Simulated scan of single mutants.
Amino acid sequence: MSSLITEYMPCESLRPFVELFWEGSFNANASGQISMQLIPNGCLELIIHLNDLHCNLQKDNSWSQTPDYMIIGMFTQPYEVRFENHVKVFAIRFKPEAIYNVFGVPASKLKERYEDMSMVLGSSFRDFSHRLREEKSVGGMIRNTEKYLLKCLLENKIDLNYVNSAADLIRNTKGIKIEDLPNRLYISQRQLEREFKDKVGISPKHYLRITRINEVLRMLSANRPIDLTSVAYHCGYFDQAHFIKDFKRITGIKPTIYIRERRQIIANPGLAHYSQK
């Protein structure tokens, strides 16, 4: 197995901001370079490398080894990642609108790119990351991370607002229509569009496409017979052509090809939870 990912839920106080924590092991056998496609999941990933062996990503049209502590911003198209060695990481998956609440950095500043998070946040984040790498257990890493994030929230004092509410409605309401959001949030369409793009980096409609397709991916990953028409309908699609167009736009391939080739794809569906409603 070339990759193994284990997910952990955050404490209750962090759930408005953090989707989950995860621990990942990639190219465990170090059997030459492995290339995989990552599908956008509508989240921002803060990656802490646990050793000195890192993956490689493209930036400014060239390949380079990623930094020790990086933030992968909001991607809207699939992108490639390469593993030349055994790479181990601990990661925080943020809801895209919530990175602003936690760190005061809008997701729009990180769209379609990754950055060295120690350069974005400075010495206090580097100190936290160094301590995290010294932890011997995942439980210890999670406890330290929760303590650090709660401290950031307390220091930034940025309250949840209508952008958080709009993103949450998109994620959790099956069949939501973007034009209905302003009335539900008592705000104008123009103001919602402007603030959503500023905080999240994309429009509410584009974000809805990503969350719907990720709910599709979640259902396709379940160990049960696959009926694409039923899956599409469950995730808010009432037109098969529209579903296939959105699926290819987000994943880069058709649903049937994805099902056949998903071992070469990293899809960590996040955010939409229609099945819980």
Rank of each mutant, 00 (worst) to 15 (best):
R126N: 01
R126S: 05
D127Y: 11
D127W: 01
F128E: 07
S129D: 00
S129L: 04
S129A: 14
S129F: 12
H130C: 01
H130Y: 08
H130Q: 07
R131E: 11
R131N: 04
R131H: 06
L132K: 08
L132A: 03
L132W: 05
L132I: 07
L132H: 08
E134P: 00
E134R: 15
E135Q: 12
E135P: 03
S137P: 00
V138Y: 09
V138R: 04
V138W: 01
V138F: 03
V138T: 15
V138Q: 05
G139N: 15
G139A: 11
M141D: 03
M141C: 02
M141S: 06
I142N: 09
I142W: 10
I142S: 12
I142F: 07
R143G: 00
R143L: 08
R143F: 12
N144M: 07
N144Q: 14
N144D: 13
N144V: 12
T145W: 10
T145M: 09
E146R: 11
E146S: 08
K147D: 12
K147Q: 14
K147V: 08
K147S: 14
Y148R: 06
Y148C: 07
Y148K: 09
L150R: 05
C152V: 01
C152P: 00
C152M: 07
L153F: 05
L153M: 11
L153H: 05
L154D: 15
E155H: 06
E155Q: 12
N156W: 03
N156H: 12
I158C: 01
I158S: 02
I158Y: 02
D159A: 11
D159V: 05
L160C: 10
N161W: 05
Y162I: 13
Y162P: 00
N164F: 05
N164D: 15
S165C: 03
S165A: 15
A166P: 05
A166Q: 03
L169A: 04
L169K: 04
L169R: 04
L169G: 06
L169I: 08
R171E: 12
N172T: 14
N172S: 09
N172V: 03
T173Q: 13
K174E: 03
K174S: 07
K174R: 12
K174Q: 08
K174N: 13
K174P: 02
K174M: 03
G175F: 05
G175H: 08
G175N: 11
G175R: 06
G175E: 06
I176T: 12
K177C: 01
K177T: 00
I178T: 11
E179G: 00
E179V: 14
D180R: 12
D180A: 14
D180P: 00
L181Q: 11
P182W: 01
R184G: 00
L185M: 09
Y186D: 15
Y186M: 14
Y186A: 13
Y186W: 14
I187A: 06
I187Q: 01
I187G: 06
I187K: 01
S188K: 04
Q189V: 02
Q191H: 10
Q191V: 03
L192M: 06
E193V: 08
E193T: 15
E193I: 14
E193F: 10
R194A: 13
R194C: 07
R194V: 04
R194S: 14
R194E: 13
E195Y: 10
E195D: 13
